[in-house]
């Protein structure tokens, strides 16, 4: 429970932090809220030589509306997202997802950027980030670049972020009118991690037909993904119970499902279908502003 010795670096500005991660390369790890990295270090599964603590940087914890987007600083904690009036009003899916993460201690310390950069295959945010078509802003000494959610998650614990880059901001588009969202999760009872988590964003069109739908899934495979087959089967259609059931059954199509003590690959696939259907149903109920 005691980590291997490391050198602790606490930069005061983002520029200084970027210089440090550039200089120390893969010998350095970035520490934000520490809810993923510190347990790994205490168990000695991770033994970085340098810790660059960005948790003290000012000005990276904020939630603002900018035009048609909500922009969120990477160091914003899960609790800040849960409690933000702006997020609850304009992007309730993110608050609902943040509320499902771990326990209160994790939500008070853990950060949006830290969770996304760690890219645990069972983390909750990636499902919502994918369904919302959010964008990640990566900063480096060369400037900033924007990465779409679809491109951001590469593999388990692996993102598009390059060495020397720090995830600095997340941009979430404001929801279209007549849109409902939901995050539904089957948690592993001990860790709270998602065995399967499904996030749905559904916009209703004429005569109750589904105009657009996007679904993000986490926990099923090595990385979170969009359930393209399900979305395609639903777009432009009347959401009858039969159609929802049939479409959602393809939620894990083409995915190399994970398997462990708590859930076999087959079980994860089956639950992906069930939770996807429930997420869509709940999102549909919320289209007209009703809480369900």
């Amino acid at each position: 429970m005691i980590p291997q010795p490391f050198e602790y670096l606490a930069p005061k500005t983002l520029e200084e932090a970027l210089r440090l991660v550039e200089r120390h390369g893969d010998e350095a790890k970035i520490l934000a809220g520490g809810q993923s990295l510190l347990p790994l270090m205490k168990l000695r599964l991770a033994a970085p030589r340098f810790i660059v603590d960005i948790g003290r940087l000012r000005g990276m914890s904020y939630i603002r509306e900018e035009g048609e987007r909500i922009v969120i600083g990477a160091l914003t904690t899960h609790t800040e997202i849960v409690e933000s009036e702006l997020i609850r009003a304009r992007c309730p899916l993110l608050a609902e997802t943040a509320e499902a993460i771990g326990d209160m201690q994790v939500r008070n310390r853990g950060t949006l950027g830290g969770s996304l950069a760690h890219a645990d295959p069972a983390a909750d945010y990636p499902a919502a980030i994918l369904a919302l078509e959010a964008e990640m802003v990566a900063s480096s000494s060369a400037g900033t670049r924007t990465i779409s959610a679809r491109k951001f998650f590469v593999d388990m614990l692996t993102t598009q972020l390059r060495p020397g880059e720090i995830l600095s901001q997340v941009r979430v588009p404001v929801l279209a009118p007549k849109t409902g969202t939901a995050y539904v999760k089957l948690p592993q009872p001990a860790s709270g991690f998602a065995i399967v988590g499904a996030a749905a964003v559904v916009t209703s069109g004429k005569a109750g037909k589904i105009e657009s739908v996007s679904i993000g899934l986490t926990g099923v495979g090595p990385k979170a993904y969009r359930a393209d087959a399900v979305e395609k089967a639903l777009r432009g259609k009347q959401p009858t119970p039969k159609l929802l059931r049939e479409a959602a059954a393809n939620a894990a199509a083409g995915v190399e499902a994970l398997s462990d003590l708590h859930a076999s690959a087959e079980y994860r696939r089956a639950m992906a279908g069930v939770l996807t259907r429930r997420a869509i149903e709940r999102a549909l109920k919320r289209v007209n502003g009703k809480r369900a």
Binding site: L40, L45, P121, M156, L157
Partner: peptide, 17 residues
């Protein structure tokens, strides 16, 4: 060992990689 206790859900996928 520790890797199995903590990383269990990722070991199979890691082995395939």
């Amino acid at each position: 060992g520790m890797i199995a206790a903590v990383g269990q859900r990722m070991i199979e996928a890691a082995a395939r990689r």
